[in-house]
Simulated scan of single mutants.
Amino acid sequence: MSEQDHDATVEKIEEMDDTGAFESGLPGFLGTIDEAIAKTEAVILAMGVILMAINTCVNVIMRFGLGKGLFFSGEVNRVLIVLITFAGIGYAARHGRHIRMSAIYDMLPVLGRKILMVIIGFFTAAAMFFLCYFSAGYIDTLIDRGRILPALSMPIWIMYIWVPIGFAVTGIQYLLTAIKNLTSEDVYLSTGVVDGYADTESEV
């Protein structure tokens, strides 16, 4: 990698660290769609966490202040936990934030890391699509059984609808990451996140 390319890479990493914004590495219309999905996921996650905090706080206040909590509070939190978890796995994949065991990976040269990221991307995408298929089958089973949440009187399958969606979005992200590494010179943790560390401590 040339010094100019290295500086551009470091600048991009620093920019993402400072702003927290996601810029898709996909071209044209696909990039626009990718960024729109990223913003939607961010809003869903933020609202989910805020609603869970409000629901829990109100329930605690009512339980200790009035002696009786919200009868539906537990079920609301269950729905929100599923939503946050499975919307979050796609968000984490998009930003390259999933936990990685990188002891061996970090010792490899650029070409070795690129090859490993391609393998990881394709393998993880296959695993996510596999889980998406079986989670969709599980939802179909729940629909057939007609189970509902007692307090909310809501079909229980609605609570799990984010499971296959989350797996599908994550699988697509890893698939695109593998393709990105096949078609670019740098090593990418996701379509918009370059693998590397910003050397900010040396700056005066």
Rank of each mutant, 00 (worst) to 15 (best):
T9N: 01
E11A: 14
E11V: 04
E11R: 11
E11W: 07
K12F: 01
I13N: 00
I13M: 03
E14G: 05
D18V: 10
G20C: 02
A21Q: 10
A21D: 12
E23C: 01
G25K: 02
P27W: 10
G28Q: 07
F29L: 06
F29Y: 10
D34M: 03
A36V: 12
A38I: 02
K39E: 14
T40N: 01
A42V: 03
V43I: 15
V43D: 08
G48R: 01
L51Q: 05
A53C: 07
A53D: 01
A53K: 03
A53T: 15
N55R: 11
C57S: 09
N59G: 05
I61P: 05
M62A: 13
M62W: 11
F64R: 05
G65A: 14
L66R: 13
L66W: 13
L66C: 11
G67Y: 13
L70P: 01
L70M: 15
F71P: 02
F71H: 11
N77H: 06
N77V: 12
I81V: 10
V82K: 04
L83C: 10
I84S: 00
I84P: 00
T85Y: 02
F86R: 07
F86V: 10
G88W: 09
I89P: 00
I89F: 01
A92Y: 07
A92P: 06
A92W: 06
A93M: 05
R94W: 01
R94A: 13
R94M: 14
H95V: 04
H95K: 15
H95L: 15
G96M: 01
G96H: 08
G96K: 07
H98P: 04
H98N: 07
R100T: 06
S102P: 02
